[in-house]
Each structure stands twice: as structure tokens, then as C-alpha cells.
Deep mutational scan, measured.
Amino acid sequence: HSLRVHINGKDFEVHNADEHVIRALEELIRRGADADELKEFLERWKG
């Protein structure tokens, strides 16, 4: 899957995101994670 996440006016393109990554991202958003947390998660995932 390809996923586009809009954080703090920046678009993050997440390519080849598997279900696990997408679910983790949705969980963060549901918990009310702020932009920094989401960005950190995506950067860690992209490795």
C-alpha cells in the first residue's frame, strides 16, 4: 500500500506500508499522538 500522511503542513509518503505499519499509525492517531510523534514513527519505520 501507499499511504500519504499530512503532518504539520508536510506530506509524508509511506510506500509499501504493510498492514502492521498502517494499524500502528492509526493507533497513534487514535491515541491523539502529536505531529512530532507521528513523524518520529514514520522516520523510524523508513529506517
Score class of each variant (00 low, 15 high):
G47P: 09
H15P: 05
I22P: 00
I29S: 03
W45M: 04
L42V: 13
A33T: 07
I29P: 00
V14N: 00
A24F: 07
N8Q: 05
E26T: 14
E19I: 14
D34Q: 11
A24G: 08
A35R: 04
E26Q: 14
S2R: 14
A33R: 04
A17L: 08
I7V: 07
D18N: 10
L42T: 04
L3D: 06
F41D: 00
H15Q: 07
K46W: 14
E19H: 11
E43P: 01
E37W: 04
R23A: 07
V21S: 04
I29W: 11
I7N: 00
A24R: 11
L28Q: 05
E40F: 12
W45D: 03
V5M: 04
D34T: 13
D11I: 15
H15S: 08
G32F: 04
H20M: 11
E26F: 15
N16S: 08
D36N: 09
K10I: 11
K10E: 13
A24H: 11
E27D: 11
V5F: 13
V5H: 02
E26G: 06
L38G: 00
D18G: 06
K39R: 13
L25M: 05
K10Y: 08
R30P: 00
A35S: 10
E43Q: 14
I29Q: 03
A24W: 09
S2M: 15
I22T: 04
N16L: 06
D36C: 03
L28I: 07
N8Y: 06
G9L: 01
A33E: 02
H6Y: 06
N16W: 05
H20F: 14
G9M: 01
R31E: 08
K46Y: 13
A33V: 08
D18M: 05
E40R: 14
I29G: 02
H15W: 09
H6V: 12
N16R: 05
E13M: 09
H1M: 06
D36R: 08
E40L: 14
V5S: 01
L25W: 06
K10N: 05
H1F: 03
N8L: 05
D18K: 05
H1K: 14
D11N: 09
F41G: 01
V14F: 11
H15F: 10
L38D: 00
N8C: 04
H1D: 13
E40Y: 11
G9Y: 01
V14Q: 00
I29A: 04
G47S: 11
R23K: 10
K46E: 09
E19V: 12
F41N: 03
D11M: 15
N16D: 10
L42K: 01
R4A: 15
G47C: 10
E37N: 05
A33P: 04
D18P: 15
W45T: 03
K39D: 09
E13K: 03
L25Y: 04
A17N: 03
A35Y: 15
W45Y: 12
E19R: 09
I7P: 00
E40H: 09
K10M: 09
E26N: 10
G47R: 08
S2Q: 13
V21W: 04
I29L: 12
R30M: 12
I29V: 08
L28R: 03
A33M: 07
K10R: 11
E13D: 05
G32Q: 06
H6D: 03
D36A: 09
L3C: 11
L3Q: 06
V21N: 02
R44N: 10
R44Y: 08
E37Y: 09
E26H: 10
D18S: 13
V14D: 00
N8F: 06
K39N: 13
D36P: 05
E43H: 13
G47F: 15
S2F: 15
K39H: 14
L42N: 01
L25C: 02
A35V: 15
R30V: 08
I29N: 02
K39S: 13
L28C: 03
F12M: 03
A24L: 10
K46C: 04
H20G: 10
D11S: 11
R4L: 13
E26Y: 15
R30S: 10
A33F: 10
F12Y: 14
H15D: 06
G47V: 12
W45N: 04
L28D: 00
V5W: 05
F41E: 06
L28Y: 07
V21G: 02
E37C: 05
G47W: 12
R30H: 08
V14M: 05
E43V: 14
R44F: 10
F41R: 02
D34C: 04
L38A: 03
R23S: 06
R4C: 14
H1V: 14
G32C: 05
R30Y: 09
A33S: 07
G9F: 01
E27I: 11
H15V: 11
L38H: 00
D11R: 08
N8M: 06
D18Y: 04
H20T: 13
S2A: 07
D18A: 11
I29K: 02
H6K: 12
E37R: 07
L25F: 10
H6S: 13
A33H: 05
L3Y: 13
K39M: 15
D34L: 08
A24I: 09
V21D: 04
